[in-house]
Simulated scan of single mutants.
Amino acid sequence: MNLIIMLIVGGILGWLASIVMRTDGQQGMFLNVVVGVIGAMLAGFLLTPFLGGAPITTGAFDIKSLFVSFLGAVVLLAIVNLVRRGSIR
Rank of each mutant, 00 (worst) to 15 (best):
M1Q: 14
N2S: 07
L3D: 14
L3R: 14
L3M: 09
I4T: 03
I4D: 07
I5E: 03
L7M: 15
I8P: 12
V9F: 09
G10C: 11
G10V: 10
I12D: 12
G14N: 11
G14W: 11
W15Q: 10
L16W: 06
L16E: 04
L16P: 02
A17R: 12
S18C: 11
I19R: 04
I19S: 12
V20L: 15
V20F: 05
M21E: 07
M21S: 12
T23V: 13
D24P: 00
G25L: 01
G25V: 04
G25W: 12
G25Q: 09
Q26R: 11
Q27F: 13
Q27M: 13
Q27S: 03
M29F: 15
M29V: 03
M29T: 08
F30M: 05
L31G: 01
L31D: 05
N32Y: 00
V33I: 01
V34L: 03
V34A: 04
V34G: 02
G36S: 00
G36Y: 01
V37T: 01
I38N: 00
I38Q: 01
G39V: 09
A40P: 02
M41Y: 07
L42S: 03
G44W: 08
L46Y: 10
L46V: 14
L47C: 05
L47N: 02
P49F: 02
P49C: 10
F50R: 08
F50L: 12
G52V: 08
G53P: 04
A54V: 06
P55K: 01
P55D: 09
I56W: 06
T57C: 07
T58Q: 14
G59M: 07
G59S: 04
A60V: 13
F61Q: 06
D62K: 00
I63K: 07
L66F: 05
V68R: 08
S69Y: 05
F70D: 11
L71A: 13
L71Q: 10
G72K: 15
G72D: 14
A73D: 09
V74I: 14
V74R: 15
V74F: 10
V75T: 13
V75E: 13
V75M: 14
L77V: 09
L77E: 14
L77N: 15
L77I: 15
I79C: 08
I79P: 06
I79S: 08
I79F: 10
I79M: 13
N81H: 13
N81W: 08
L82I: 06
L82G: 10
L82H: 03
L82R: 03
V83S: 10
R84W: 11
G86F: 11
G86E: 03
S87D: 10
S87Y: 05
S87P: 04
S87M: 08
I88V: 10
R89N: 00
R89M: 00
R89A: 00
